[in-house]
């Protein structure tokens, strides 16, 4: 009788401790995680020894695909004073105003619902004239269009005339003038604009973006890189 009893105890493992550990780990991951944002193009940034981290607030990042398409991402402040959503909605409003300066006859108006859709998007990159159509697509169709080859990205060209900006420059200007004073401040300091490009991207492509920013006198910005440990 006694023998049998001992055997029975051994087959069962107490999972409580295990459960404790997993719950702890889970809490840790839930609290520290920032989700990978979906990006229209996957880029592998070049390695560098720089140890400065990318700011996770008040940032306008310019995503450059190897073919030269340009996408933008906007982040608001860290606390809830200037949420990314608020900044993005304002950005679109500014952009419309900015665009109408050079195209007074353009019929460009967004409904509140479209504004709301826009404010929830992480990355965007369609010509402003197609924006309305794009915002009214179904979410998965929207992503597909952004990634598709028909999408030219934000129109950009070599432009050295600050009085006659291209659409990319208008967007940057709109972000600069947005409701978020912190974004403007960090853009002036050079921490607010980050260029993210793949390491295989030809320099001529990146140069166009840099040159556009230079024309707007925003000649301080950061390049996103991955960490490389220096061998001594």
């Amino acid at each position: 009788m006694g023998k049998v009893k001992i055997k029975k105890k051994e087959t069962r493992i107490d999972m409580t401790a295990m459960s404790d550990v997993t719950v702890l780990l889970l809490t840790f991951f839930m609290l520290t995680s920032t989700f990978l944002q979906k990006e229209p193009v996957t880029v592998i940034t070049p390695p560098s020894v720089s140890e400065e981290k990318v700011p996770d607030s008040n940032l306008l990042s310019v995503l450059v695909s190897p073919e030269g398409k340009v996408f933008l991402e906007v982040l608001g402040s860290k606390d809830s004073t200037m949420k990314s959503e608020t900044v993005r909605a304002d950005l679109l409003k500014n952009m419309v105003a900015e665009y109408k300066k050079s195209h007074p006859s353009a019929n460009l108006a967004f409904t509140n619902k479209e504004m709301e859709t826009f404010s929830k998007l992480n990355a965007f990159g369609v010509p402003i004239t197609k924006m309305k159509e794009w915002l009214n697509l179904e979410p998965d169709q929207r992503d597909k269009f952004l990634e598709s080859e028909q999408n030219p990205g934000i129109p950009i060209n070599m432009n050295e005339d600050p009085n006659n900006p291209n659409e990319f420059q208008m967007w940057v200007r709109a972000a600069y003038n947005s409701v978020n004073p912190e974004l403007q401040e960090s853009m002036v300091k050079g921490r607010g604009i980050a260029i993210k490009a793949d390491q295989t991207t030809p320099y001529s492509v990146v140069n166009v973006v840099m040159d556009n920013l230079q024309t707007m006198k925003m000649n301080k910005f950061t390049l996103m890189t991955a960490l490389k440990t220096e061998e001594e």
Binding site: S50, E52, M224
Partner: peptide
């Protein structure tokens, strides 16, 4: 997190 490399270009 990605690293950044700060650069300042001359104006045009």
């Amino acid at each position: 997190k990605s690293q950044t490399l700060q650069i300042a270009l001359p104006t045009n």
